[in-house]
Design a protein around this nucleic acid. Sequence first.
DNA 1: CGTACGTA
DNA 2: TACGTACGG
Length: 333
Amino acid sequence: MGVALRDILEDYRQDVDPGTLRGAIAVDAFNALYQFLTIIRQPDGTPLMDGEGRITSHLSGLFFRNINFLESGMRPVYVFDGAPPDLKAETVAKRREVRDAAGERWKEALVRGDTEEAYRQARQSARIDDAIIASSERLLDLMGIPWCVAPSEGEAQAAYMAMQGDVSAAASQDYDALLFGAPSLVRNLTVSGKRRFRGRTVVVRPERIELAAVLNGLSLDREQLVEIAILVGTDFNPGIRGVGAKTALKIVGKGEFEKVLEEKAPEFDPEPVRSFFLNPPVSTDYRLEWGEADREGIIGMLCDEYAFSTGRVEAALEKIGVRSGQRTLDAWF
DNA sequence: CGTACGTA
DNA sequence: TACGTACGG
């Protein structure tokens, strides 16, 4: 879900010229996988599956998106979430509840033959499990795309990599990466293109939000932006009832963060959340090396194991210059 | 989400 | 060529 800062951040969205996305970018892996798992479905909500009923929506999304990323000169590194912090326990439990309930309503809607409701509920029931993580990591390895597992939140790790200058931006739909200090956040990277909203075709383009521009424009420092998030509510605290981003901006601007908390939530200690955003657990031990895609390995996995069409997979690989016989040719030199 | 292929 | 729709797994 992330933080609801949209109302104060929307003025700072910049259109991204696709050509400027060349080079290393840290992609929030869980965020991307959720998007693939929610979007890549049949009209009744059924995800793509192989003959054994294993979900393959995420593999389709990852494979074809990455082909396009690589083709355009982008070098993605996928950052997976590690163990969620204790602060997130309530959010995690609540999400599980929502997912499970949606799964039930999906089944019921299917029985009723209510396809639209089935689709809606199916999307909300999307879940990332160990098989989805393991198969994603394996496909990335075969594509020569680096990935790492964050000690805690993937967005914090992606932000750190951007702060180090190892990647030019963190890519996620959520604004949290900015709170974690990412100098640049790219949204809509894994959901760009034409999409239909209520029958209308809308073009979704990647957008960039620069942390410096936000802080300058709103006359804040990062600590104050984190305070705004805490008032609105984050994955790590419930927020103050009735306080949205604009109200929170005013409160923090007047220096009344502590005062409002004392009034409205005297029991709540914001310190652990504040320090989690300002100084999150991250790993300094990661490697960013992009290698050649393993054509036979990819075909073996996607086509032989997961029933992808060989023609489609080969055509996609062709786009990034991975052809049959390449390895045998290399062997001559 | 993506590609493939129909139609104007 | 541009766009809508079917299908992918």
